[in-house]
Nucleic acid binder design. Structure first.
Length: 203
DNA sequence: CTACCGATGCGCT
DNA sequence: GCGCATCGGTAGC
């Protein structure tokens, strides 16, 4: 069985649900870059809705967050701290600002391709963190708005793997720091280390 | 392992 | 101008 043929490609119906539910279900799915035959098992996802003070959609639609407000299953890529890229998939219905941040994954195929873009000693450092994942997968700002449910470069696949998923507070956010909107594989070494924002109010 | 710090560009008030 | 949905290096335990 190859990753490219057997597993089902996730359709728009999968993403047209509430972000927290999509985030939970995305854990265990495969992120696939078709033009490079690069694949990874998603192990950590965070959900962001428009009523969430930590969300880029909180202040309403803007040029930057437009993909979050459009139809589900599109990429929202933003620049973080002036130097990194982070990758979301839009969820919910058209006109509602939602998305899921892909935070970490386990490399499955294309290790050499990823290492060419992100030279690290250990596999565990390739995709552990949202900006690291984008660097290794070659995800950049020009891909923001692209359709992830068509024949484009990026899409998601389901090969039936269903890990045990747990939820907890998100990493690095200053507002709504205790909302349980982070979904990940319990005990997995591929998950990024939890780090509360030093600017977040005490719990 | 945890804690801290600086880099760095821009979206938004 | 302010404030980051981060990361890599260094210091210390």
């Amino acid at each position: 069985m190859t990753i490219d043929t057997a597993p089902a490609v996730l359709t728009r119906v999968f993403f047209a649900r509430q972000a927290p539910q999509v985030a939970r279900d995305l854990v265990g799915m495969i992120l696939y870059r078709r033009d490079a035959d690069v694949a990874a098992r998603i192990v950590e996802v965070e959900a962001y809705t428009h009523d969430d003070p930590a969300s880029h959609a909180y202040a309403g639609p803007t040029a930057r967050n437009a993909p979050m407000w459009g139809p589900a299953g599109h990429a929202y890529v933003y620049r973080s701290y002036g130097m990194h890229w982070c990758f979301n998939v839009s969820t919910g219905t058209d006109g509602v600002g939602q998305g899921c941040l892909i935070r970490a994954a386990q490399p499955l195929r294309g290790h050499a391709w990823m290492r060419a873009r992100r030279p690290v000693e250990r596999d565990v450092d390739l995709l552990r963190g949202p900006a690291r994942l984008c660097q290794a997968f070659g995800i950049v700002g020009s891909m923001s708005g692209s359709d992830l449910c068509s024949d484009g470069v990026l899409h998601f696949r389901d090969d039936g793997v269903r890990p045990d998923v747990v939820e907890g507070p998100r990493v690095g956010v200053t507002r709504a720091a205790d909302w349980p909107r982070r979904y990940y594989v319990a005990g997995s070494r591929w998950v990024s280390p939890y780090r509360r924002s030093p600017r977040a109010p005490s719990p």
